[in-house]
Simulated scan of single mutants.
Amino acid sequence: MEDLNFYESVYALARHIPEGRVTSYGAIARALGREGAARIVGYAMGNAGKAEPPVPAHRVLNSKGELSAKAAFGHPNLMQQLLENEGVQIKNDRVINFKSVFWDPLVEDII
């Protein structure tokens, strides 16, 4: 049951990621006080398609800025297309300007 509540916390935080910005699984875990739980955040993102209201899971990447979960979007190019539609530049399944578009929930004002 704890993980389900954690998933809801992950989704609530992910809904604050601004359009055109990205964050990482680890950054979300740290912001929620669960250092080292990046994998659980990844599992949550893998189930985000069922969440209501919708979760912008395409904005959550691995710590290198790679689109490591693109298979979860059903079409191999959908995650990249969603990000590019928001102005995020991708090359070889990696965000080109990762540091400049990175959104850190511990630093940004989310409320």
Rank of each mutant, 00 (worst) to 15 (best):
M1I: 13
D3G: 08
D3P: 11
F6D: 10
Y7W: 03
E8H: 14
V10Y: 04
L13R: 01
R15N: 12
H16F: 09
I17A: 05
E19Q: 14
V22M: 01
T23F: 01
S24K: 01
S24C: 07
R30W: 09
A31W: 03
A31Y: 02
A31K: 02
G33S: 10
A37N: 11
G42S: 04
Y43N: 15
A44Q: 12
A44H: 12
A44N: 12
A44D: 12
M45L: 11
N47P: 02
A48Y: 07
K50I: 05
P54N: 07
P56E: 05
A57H: 00
K64E: 15
G65P: 06
G65F: 00
E66W: 09
E66G: 08
L67D: 01
L67Y: 03
A69I: 14
A69M: 14
K70I: 14
A72R: 07
A72S: 08
F73H: 06
F73D: 04
F73T: 11
F73W: 11
H75N: 14
P76S: 11
P76K: 09
L78H: 12
M79C: 09
M79I: 10
M79W: 02
Q81V: 03
G87A: 13
V88R: 00
K91W: 11
D93N: 14
V95H: 04
I96Y: 08
I96W: 04
I96S: 04
N97R: 10
N97D: 15
N97G: 09
K99D: 13
K99I: 05
D104F: 08
P105Q: 10
P105R: 06
V107E: 14
D109N: 14
I110W: 05
I110N: 09
